[in-house]
């Protein structure tokens, strides 16, 4: 029997363009998109630009950016911690701004630049924020960490990391149940100067 588990590396190395079915292709105009049955899913072809790569997907309109990343593109670094906009674990950058991918439809991200934790390190070199999280032990279980780091990078870029107090306030949308908070503040303080020099 064929093993149903697929290799992550193999998957990530696969062609980024997913075959688009005729059914989905025909569902592009608003008229054609109306469901045949009242309860039938509405499909939509969505081109997502994730970490610099364009990926074409045939999705249910209900699919969130989070589920598109995790279930369709197998970019599982972005985490689901509540699926209702309360924890920040799913934070990604959309056109450079930090947003919650669980409350963003994949369709809303069409044509916009999505950056996830997998896209932060460049050429095998960690982003200064990633290195700072290591240096300051700014995580324990690691589950909220991708969201924390994406949020922290944006926090610095927004100019909201001027004081410890400001960092704490602007990082409060990212829950850490292990409560590594003081170390996260220390990490942001370390990274912000390096990011400034970059």
């Amino acid at each position: 029997m064929e093993t149903p588990k697929i290799s992550r590396r193999g998957l990530l190395g696969a062609s980024p363009v997913v075959a688009v079915s005729a059914k989905a292709a025909s569902a592009q105009t608003p008229e054609a998109a109306a469901p045949a049955l009242p309860d039938a899913p509405v499909r939509r072809r969505v081109v997502l630009k994730v970490n610099g790569e364009s990926r074409e997907l045939d999705l249910d309109t209900r699919t969130t950016l989070l589920d598109a990343l995790r279930e369709h593109l197998h970019l599982a670094g972005t985490k689901k911690g509540c699926d209702q906009g309360q924890c920040g674990a799913c934070t990604v950058h959309l056109d450079g701004e930090r947003v919650l991918s669980c409350l963003t439809l994949a369709a809303q991200a069409e044509g916009r630049e999505v950056v996830t934790i997998e896209g932060l390190a460049r050429g095998g070199k960690l982003h200064p924020m990633q290195q700072a999280f290591i240096d300051n032990d700014a995580f324990q279980c690691g589950y909220c960490t991708p969201g924390q780091i994406m949020s922290a990078v944006a926090c610095v870029q927004e100019g909201h990391a001027r004081t410890d107090h400001e960092i704490r306030e602007y990082m409060s949308g990212n829950l850490c149940r292990c409560a590594a908070y003081p170390n996260i503040v220390a990490a942001i303080n370390q990274a912000k100067s390096q990011m400034g020099r970059a």
Partner: peptide, 9 residues
């Protein structure tokens, strides 16, 4: 109100 992520959205 809310968090910076939500305020961005």
């Amino acid at each position: 109100a809310a968090s910076q992520q939500l305020r961005n959205m």
